[in-house]
């Protein structure tokens, strides 16, 4: 490495900046600044076009009535929002999404903390277990959801076989409006559990062992140490996983799209799926933009809540 630098410094210097002594300071400054701008330009141009501008454009579109094809858009004021808040389906979708998000996150975090504690033991073969538990996180969601459709098959599925062991009659998972959302929740937990497990594991490994041992010496039992020492020390990790988990769950699309298409009887229609359907199947760009704005506000609120509360609640 240093050899490389040495070599380059022996080459003619016409490529590099003239040294400070020969050029006036302001010129060097200008050159620095231009270099800075050039280096960040690709990122900022793309962000401007594809991330920042869309916020304003969505806000504007949400005030129009437009089918994505007509050349002119009709301004309708807040009509889309009024319509949105007067639509029973909107509330149904919000309810489904919240049920899905909270159930998924709570169950996942409980299981993953438990798995992380198991993986935190010094036992041979640990990295194999960790790898298996983590593998759904990298697996293509759409493809995994496809496998799960067959796992849930009520005639020949793997899960029917499993439930039969305990003499439980398998529900018709994906065609029963009562059960379909639970099928989606199971897959979502499966898909994301590896991520929270390895994050918890990293958290556990950074917990000071001496504190736990000191508590044990003081006569606390294992449960007390977990409850009063380990868990509080993990609270930043728990908080992080909870908030990012909820944000991620609110954005769920792939699983629903592949497994249920929002059905049966709209029982698994999550917010983003509803948004997609409204925009790209029904071409109601104005109404869908209003949906997107509401979504945006909610996600921002959760994120700001996170940054605010991280300081107050979390025990470091």
């Amino acid at each position: 490495m240093t050899g490389d630098l040495q070599r380059t410094s022996d080459q003619p210097k016409n490529l590099s900046v003239p040294s400070g002594a020969t050029s006036p300071g302001w010129r060097r400054h200008l050159k620095e600044r231009l270099t800075f701008l050039a280096f960040i330009a690709p990122n900022f141009i793309l962000f401007t076009i594809f991330t920042f501008w869309p916020i304003f454009f969505t806000a504007y579109l949400s005030l129009t009535d437009w089918n994505m094809i007509r050349l002119t858009r009709k301004m309708v004021g807040l009509q889309n929002y009024q319509q949105l808040f007067a639509t029973p389906l909107f509330y149904k979708v919000v309810g489904i999404t919240l049920l899905f998000a909270f159930t998924t996150v709570v169950i996942r975090m409980a299981i993953s903390l438990f798995l992380a504690m198991l993986l935190n033991q010094k036992i041979p073969g640990r990295s194999l277990f960790r790898g298996i538990i983590f593998s759904p996180h990298v697996t293509t969601t759409a493809a995994a959801a496809m496998v799960w459709v067959f796992v849930f098959d009520s005639n020949f599925g793997l899960l029917k076989w499993f439930l039969d062991i305990f003499n439980i009659r398998s529900p018709k998972w994906l065609s029963d409006p009562k059960w379909a959302i639970w099928a989606v929740i199971i897959v979502a937990i499966w898909k994301t559990i590896g991520f929270s497990t390895v994050v918890y594991l990293a958290g556990l490994q950074s917990v000071d062992k001496e504190l736990q041992e000191a508590a044990l010496v003081d006569g606390a039992n294992a449960w007390h140490v977990f409850r009063h020492v380990t868990l509080p020390l993990l609270s930043p990790v728990t908080f992080f996983l909870m908030v990012t988990g909820i944000i991620g769950a609110l954005q769920t699309f792939d699983i629903v799209s592949v497994m249920t298409g929002g059905g049966p009887l709209e029982s698994t229609k999550t917010y983003v799926f509803y948004l997609y359907e409204t925009a790209f199947q029904q071409f109601r760009a104005g109404y869908a933009s209003a949906l997107a704005m509401v979504f945006f506000v909610v996600i921002m609120a959760v994120t700001l809540f996170q940054t605010r509360m991280a300081r107050r609640w979390v025990h470091y």
Binding site: P54, Q251, F253, Y276, A279, S289, F295
Partner: peptide, 9 residues
């Protein structure tokens, strides 16, 4: 900023 927000624009 959630990606879903920017889909339509």
């Amino acid at each position: 900023i959630p990606g879903q927000m920017t889909l339509i624009p």
